[in-house]
Amino acid sequence: MSDFDQMGIVVDWVDACRKGDLATLLDLYADDAELECTCNHTRRYRGRSELETYWRSQLNAFSSAGFALEEITPVLHGVDLEYSLALSLHICVSFRFGPEGKIERMRCMPSWQDLHDACVC
């Protein structure tokens, strides 16, 4: 059992995305964190520099498309989240955390209902 609030970290992640706050968003990740995006093609980003490159472009898409939290669920080894963009495209995200309370692994994918649609992430 962790001694940090995993749900709280994910809520902070959502808030940083909504605000377009890149610095706060990056601070939620471990230095060697890995993000895997399987929305269009599987892409992996590792470490602060690659995450910064990824999120710099994605935050612009979030702010212009409209970002809405759909569901947040604690799971055995982390937190799962579903959000929508422009109230239509649904994205599922799995967060896994390290012992220091930082995001170590994150995986995003289109929701099963949107597998035929394009993804902006």
Rank of each mutant, 00 (worst) to 15 (best):
L25F: 05
L25C: 02
L25G: 09
D27N: 08
L28K: 05
L28V: 02
L28M: 05
Y29G: 06
Y29Q: 01
Y29V: 02
Y29H: 13
A30R: 00
A30G: 08
D31Q: 07
D31Y: 08
A33D: 05
A33E: 01
A33Y: 04
E34Q: 05
E34G: 03
E34Y: 03
L35N: 08
L35Q: 12
E36V: 15
C37A: 15
C37H: 02
T38Y: 00
C39N: 10
C39P: 06
C39D: 07
N40F: 07
N40S: 11
N40W: 12
H41G: 14
H41L: 14
T42P: 11
R43A: 12
R43L: 14
R44S: 15
R46L: 13
G47S: 00
G47A: 02
G47N: 00
R48A: 14
S49V: 08
S49Q: 09
E50Q: 07
E50I: 02
E52Y: 02
E52P: 11
Y54L: 08
Y54G: 02
W55L: 07
W55F: 15
Q58H: 15
Q58D: 02
N60G: 14
N60E: 14
A61E: 14
A61W: 12
F62L: 10
S63W: 05
S63F: 08
S63E: 06
S64I: 07
S64F: 10
A65T: 06
G66T: 01
G66P: 10
G66V: 11
